[in-house]
Every structure is written in C-alpha cells, then in structure tokens.
Amino acid sequence: MVWLKLDLQYFAADEKTEKATPKKRQDTRKKGQVPKSQDVNTGFLLLLVFGALFILGPYMEGTLTGMYKVAFNEYIHRELTEEQTHSMFVEMTMEISKIMAPIMGVAIVAGIASNLLQVGIMFTGEPLKLDLKKLDPIKGAKRIFSARALVELMKSLLKISLVGVITFSIIWINKDQMMMMSQKSVEGALAFFGTITILMGVDSALALLLLSVLDYTYQKYDHEKNIRMSKKDIKDEHKNIEGDPQIKAKIKEKQRQMSASRMMSEVPEADVVITNPTHYAIAIKYEETKSDAPFVVAMGVDFLALKIKEVAQSHHVTIVENRSLARALYQHSEVDQPIDEQFYKAVAEVLAYVYQLEKKI
C-alpha cells in the first residue's frame, strides 16, 4: 500500500495540471510558439484589399482604360521589332505596377497588422531551424489523425461552406440584374460586376473575421493546454532559477566559514572584546588612520562568540563584560564598519578603561 501511494503521488506530480509560469511562457515565445489564428490574417487581408479596391476602383479603371487606348491607338500601328516590343513591355509593366503596387502595399500592411494584433513584436529564428523530428513518419501520422487535425478539417469545411453560401446568396439576389447586363454599356457592366465582386469579398472577409474570433479563442485554449506544467516542472524551474536549495545552503555555509575564518584572523589585532558574557562577543578596534570612529573587526553569538573569546585570550586581548552594550552592538553593527554614533560614549569609556589597564596612556 505504501508503494502504491508513492506511485500515485509520483504520477500526480508529473501530471500537467498547473498553469505555465511567466518563464515558461517567455521560453515558448522565444521558440515561436504563440497562440495565433490564420483566419485573422485572411480576414484582415481580404477586408483591407477589397476595401482598397473599392476606394481605388476609379483610379484603376482610368489606368486600365488608358492602357487599352494606348494599345489600340498607338501600339497597333508600330512595327513589330525587338526594340518596339521591349519598349511596349516596359511601358505596360510600369502601368500595371501602378495598379498593383497599392494593392500589394495594403496586403503587406494587413499581414503585418494582423500578426502584431495577435502576437505583438516578436523576432525568433527557432521555427526555421532544421528539426529531424518533424520528418518522423510516425509522428506525422499522429498529427494527421489527431484531434487538432480533425478540428482544422471541420474549420476548413465551415469556412468553405460559409463563403460559398455568402457568394451564392449575393449572386442569387442580383441574378435578374446580371441577366440584363447584356443591355448595358461595357462601362456599366464592368461597374456592376466590380461592385458585386467587392460586396462578395467584403462580406466573406467579415464572416471570416467573425470565425477568426472563435478560432483564436480555440488556439489560445489549445496553446495554454500544451504549455501546462506539472508541479515537478515548476519545482525544477524554481531550482534552475534560484539554484538548488542544498547547493545554496552549502555555499552559504562555506561563506560563513570563510567569513568566520577571516574574522578570527582579525581578533588578535583588536583593542577589546566586549561580551555578554556567554552569548555575544564583539571585537572592537580603534585606528585613527583607518576610521574616525572605532570599528568592529569580528562579532558572533554562541559558538562563534566562544571562539572569538578563545582567540582573544590566547593573544592577550582584553575582554570586557558589558551585557547591554554587547547585545546592542551586535544588533546595530556590521563587521569592518564603524560603530553607530549612539555607542560612541559607551565604547569610548570601555577603550579608556582598556588603555588605562594596559598603561597605553
């Protein structure tokens, strides 16, 4: 039963039930793994492009009409030579570029804006790195027949059906007018079909944007699910960030030992050691060239205090018992730092006593 309980605890610790930590989110973002819906890109692209077509329609019509006029009024009378053909090709390419450049510019802006809206500014080369695991046929088959692939299939069918219904409905509503276009002028027919095309495009784009909200919600949910962490993962991450507690404890212990060793080497140079007498020991030194006030060269409690007193006795450093002063100095002083101003008078009296005792004055 004990082993069974331990196994259950182990599996529970490995179960990914916890939300991702900020560090895990940052790491996945660096790898290019962010919630993102391609439908947002498609919807924005279609909406802005068809909006640009609606606004730039007259300009495009004028440019195309001018191309036709030049072609049938000028180019048709030119001699068919290499130079003339090259000249006509360059001129036509420039005119077509004038038409296509604004549309391409709008498409680029739409692509950048839709990505910034979803993931913000992000630069990473991780998705471009060669990963042989992606060529694994077994994993590839699992992806094809996974729940995610089924969701993508259903989503694609829904988009195709929705766009098909929208375009068919618009055509069906305007079918009578379409039948009468043979009685209209060429310009009138082009204007009508252009309007119908833009209407179908804008309506389809709005429908895709509506679907993209649902798709982005699903993508975000799926992303959060994929980056979930187990309690063990969180603990390991904390260890990596903060360091293993056992190692940190050993380092601190080593630092304490080094600090204690250094302090012990300074005790023989002290002028006096003020004690509690058993729990506290503070070694004080006064040196005019180093500090205007007496400073602490070593201090400690319990075992360390005992060691300080032993070193002081072995080097004939005077030990003075002052319970309240020793405790106060320990609480308000730092090693290698001058004592606080509030202790000047009390320490001066102790030093004066020591100097008299040692006949230094």
Rank of each mutant, 00 (worst) to 15 (best):
I282Q: 03
V2F: 13
G164C: 03
L306W: 13
T28Y: 14
L8S: 09
L150D: 06
T93L: 12
F89H: 09
G194E: 02
N41S: 10
S333M: 02
T85S: 11
S185H: 06
A141R: 05
L190Q: 15
I96K: 05
P245W: 05
Q313A: 12
E15M: 13
P268G: 03
M264E: 00
G188K: 13
S261A: 15
T28N: 14
I173V: 08
V119S: 07
M1C: 10
A298I: 02
N240D: 12
G125N: 15
A283S: 08
A191Q: 15
R25Y: 05
G164N: 02
I121N: 08
A107C: 05
A205R: 01
V273K: 00
A346L: 06
L214Q: 07
K220M: 01
K159D: 06
D39H: 08
T81R: 00
T81A: 02
L117T: 10
A293R: 09
K139D: 15
G57P: 07
I319T: 07
A191M: 10
Q356V: 07
K285H: 03
S161I: 01
M60P: 00
L6K: 13
K307L: 04
V119R: 06
I241L: 11
S114H: 02
W3Q: 15
Q84S: 11
I138N: 10
I112R: 04
I251W: 05
E95S: 10
L209W: 04
I103T: 07
P127L: 08
P245S: 01
D292I: 10
R228Q: 12
K30S: 13
V151C: 06
T197I: 13
V2L: 13
S324H: 14
E83D: 07
V350D: 02
L357Q: 10
K290N: 07
K345L: 13
I76N: 04
S324L: 11
M88T: 06
D271T: 00
D136L: 05
K225M: 04
